[in-house]
């Protein structure tokens, strides 16, 4: 099976010299949920925006391979990529409160996606919008179509965003922290919804999150990012069973695991902060926070293949 999305050696730099993404490679298979996990500022959102070609102005993107199906995204002009956005690949964002245009109704904003990509009438677009609003669990979809974003709660707006992303039956859905801004109870609902939609529609889901709980619930594959690099990528089960990179282990120690963490046992934490990485940085960016740091961590860091689908970059090979 060929991946829906294939990225090899993606690099993104910003005008201030920050290297936001450094050599990221990942693949998303059809119908698979691939979680990208890491702290704020690790480059996971930038990676997602690169795929959609939605990086802020001034950002420089380069990649050896960036392929969506048969479309070579590295060679396409933005107006051609725009034909894929919202159609074959769709994206939802962290901020449901501000991601919808306050001046237009829900129905109008949803229908225009279908009008743009399928050239159908407004009425057809609205029919499809109502159908999808029902599908994402919104009651009285007909009434919602005529409402404005400010009349809906955050959870409802995120459902609208999801429904809007599905207007053209995309094959890839990129969800950038879709539940971070929501109440805990609503978070669970939205995750359940994403999971069931993904199974129903056979979506490939690239889910960006900082929450390992979300990863545990959703992911088949995981890429752990730190300071612009994927430091470990693995099958979700393998990752939780045997995390190889000290950073991944640190992250896992920070969250309680039911049945494993004894009551009263203190949770771990990772000292220090993510360093700002400029271009031409050499060595492991985690070494200042790592309990296993050694002189070798200042040099080139080897890439270790622990199993056919478990990779890590660390000097402690096979750790």
């Amino acid at each position: 099976m060929r991946p829906v999305l294939e990225i090899t050696n993606l690099n993104v730099g910003f005008p201030d010299g920050t290297a936001a993404v450094r050599g990221v490679s990942l693949q998303v298979m059809p119908g698979e949920t691939h979680c990208v996990v890491g702290e704020s500022g690790c480059g996971k959102s930038v990676t997602a925006l690169s795929v959609m070609n939605l990086l802020p102005r001034g950002a420089r993107r380069s990649a050896d391979v960036m392929r969506f199906h048969d479309h070579d995204l590295t060679r396409m002009a933005d107006r051609h990529i725009a034909r894929l956005r919202g159609d074959k690949m769709a994206m939802i964002f962290q901020e449901p409160m501000t991601s919808l245009n306050p001046a237009y109704t829900i129905g109008s904003q949803m229908a225009e996606v279908l009008e743009r990509h399928r050239h159908v009438s407004r009425a057809k677009g609205l029919d499809r919008a109502a159908e999808l609003l029902g599908k994402v669990g919104i009651t009285a979809p007909g009434m919602r179509l005529g409402q404005y974003p400010h009349q809906l709660s955050g959870g409802l707006r995120q459902r609208v965003m999801i429904a809007m992303a599905l207007m053209c039956d995309p094959e890839l859905l990129i969800a950038d922290e879709p539940t971070t801004a929501l109440d805990v109870t609503v978070q669970a609902q939205i995750l359940r919804l994403l999971k069931s939609l993904q199974q129903q529609l056979g979506l490939a889901l690239l889910l960006i999150t900082h929450d390992l709980g979300v990863v545990a619930r959703m992911a088949q594959r995981v890429s752990v990012m730190y300071a612009g690099q994927v430091v470990e990528s693995a099958d979700a089960k393998a990752l939780f069973a045997a995390p190889a990179h000290p950073y991944t282990r640190g992250l896992l120690d920070c969250v309680p695991i039911p049945g494993k963490t004894a009551p009263g046992e203190p949770l771990g934490s990772i000292p220090g902060v993510v360093p700002r990485i400029g271009e031409g940085y050499v060595g492991c960016a985690f070494r200042d926070r790592c309990a296993y740091a050694a002189p070798a961590c200042k040099g080139e860091i080897p890439r270790n293949r622990l199993s056919p689908d478990h990779e890590t970059i660390c000097t402690r090979s096979g750790a």
């Binding site: 939605l54 107006r79 725009a82 034909r83 956005r85 159609d87 964002f93 991601s99 919808l100 809007m164």
Partner: peptide
């Protein structure tokens, strides 16, 4: 953010600028 959404929807530049 809503302009980022409009771009993510693949809308044309004229629609993004003039409508949204």
């Amino acid at each position: 953010d809503y302009i980022r959404t409009a771009r993510a929807k693949g809308l044309s530049t004229s629609s993004i600028v003039l409508k949204h």
